[in-house]
C-alpha cells in the first residue's frame, strides 16, 4: 500500500471549502429540530388530545427508520407532491426550481426533531414537579413558569444529550452527499476520484470531522460549567 502523507494535507486544505456547507446543514437541522422537538415534547408531556398521538407516531416512525431513508423519501417524494399540487392549480411553479439543499434541510430537521424531542422530554421530566408548583404558587401562568423556571433547568440537565445529538447530526450530514450536496464528505469523494487517492482524502475528511467534534465537546463542556454554577453544592 502506498500512502502519500503530503496529499493528506493537500486534501485537508481542499476540504475546508466544504466546511461551511457541513456546518450550515448541521446547525440549521439541529436548530429547526430543536424547535420541532420542543413542541413535540410539550404536546406529549401535556397529553394534548389527538396531537399527542400524532407526535408519538412521528417519534417512533422517524426513530424507527434510517436517516438516509428520510432523506430519500423527502428528496423523491416532496418534489412529486409539489409538482402534483402545482399542476392541479395550474401554477407555472415546479419543484425543479427548488435548490436540493432545501430538501436536505427539511429532511434532516425532521430527523433531528424526533431525536431531540426525546432529549427535551426527558430533560423536562427530570425537573422536580415542585419547581412548577412554586411558580404557580407565586402567581405565574403556565407559559411563564415553563419559560422562566422549568425549561432553563431542563436545558441544563439535557446538555450532555444535546451535545450528543449535535455530534450525531454533524456526522449524519455526510449523508447529504447522496443527493449531490457538496459538504465535507462529498468534497472528499471529489478530491479522491479526481486524484485517484481515496485513502488520503478520506483520512483528511476523518481528521476534519474529528476536529469539529472535539471543538463541540470543548464548547459544550465550557457551557456546562457555566450553566451549572447553581448546582455546585456547598453547605446543604
Amino acid at each position: 500500500m502506498k500512502l502519500d502523507p503530503g496529499f493528506i494535507w493537500t486534501s485537508f486544505v481542499a476540504l475546508l471549502s466544504a466546511l461551511p456547507m457541513t456546518l450550515f446543514i448541521t446547525v440549521v437541522s439541529v436548530g429547526v429540530g430543536f424547535v420541532i422537538g420542543s413542541i413535540i415534547a410539550l404536546l406529549r408531556i401535556y397529553k394534548i388530545p389527538v396531537l399527542q398521538h400524532i407526535a408519538a407516531f412521528y417519534v417512533t416512525f422517524i426513530r424507527g427508520t434510517p436517516m438516509l431513508m428520510h432523506l430519500f423519501l423527502i428528496y423523491f417524494g416532496l418534489p412529486a407532491l409539489i409538482d402534483a399540487i402545482s399542476g392541479a392549480f395550474g401554477w407555472t411553479f415546479t419543484s425543479a426550481s427548488i435548490p436540493i439543499l432545501v430538501f436536505v434541510l427539511i429532511s434532516f430537521s425532521i430527523t433531528a426533531g424526533a431525536y431531540l424531542s426525546e432529549v427535551i422530554r426527558s430533560g423536562i421530566l427530570a425537573v422536580d414537579k415542585g419547581q412548577l408548583e412554586a411558580a404557580y404558587a407565586i402567581g405565574m401562568k403556565t407559559p411563564q413558569a415553563l419559560w422562566r423556571i422549568v425549561l432553563p433547568q431542563a436545558f441544563a440537565v439535557s446538555l450532555p444529550n444535546l451535545s450528543n445529538s449535535l455530534i450525531g447530526m454533524l456526522h449524519g450530514s455526510s449523508l447529504a452527499f447522496t443527493v449531490t450536496a457538496v459538504e465535507i464528505f462529498a468534497k472528499a469523494n471529489i478530491v479522491a476520484t479526481t486524484n485517484w487517492k481515496y485513502f488520503e482524502a478520506f483520512i483528511a475528511a476523518a481528521l476534519l470531522y474529528w476536529g469539529i467534534t472535539v471543538l463541540i465537546e470543548k464548547g459544550v463542556s465550557i457551557l456546562e460549567k457555566r450553566i451549572n454554577v447553581y448546582n455546585r453544592g456547598g453547605v446543604a
Binding site: D128, G130, Q131, E133, A134, A135, Y136, A137, I138, G139, M140, Q144, R148, I149, P152, Q153, A156, Y230, N231
Partner: peptide
C-alpha cells in the same frame, strides 16, 4: 394564586436562581 402565597415542605426554591432572584421573581414577572 395572586392573592395567596405558599411555603412548601421541601422549600421548592427555584434552583437556578439566587436567594435574591427567587424573591424578586414574582415581584417582577
Amino acid at each position: 394564586r395572586q392573592k395567596t402565597a405558599m411555603v412548601f415542605q421541601n422549600y421548592n426554591l427555584f434552583k437556578h436562581k439566587t436567594a435574591l432572584e427567587n424573591v424578586m421573581e414574582g415581584l417582577v414577572i
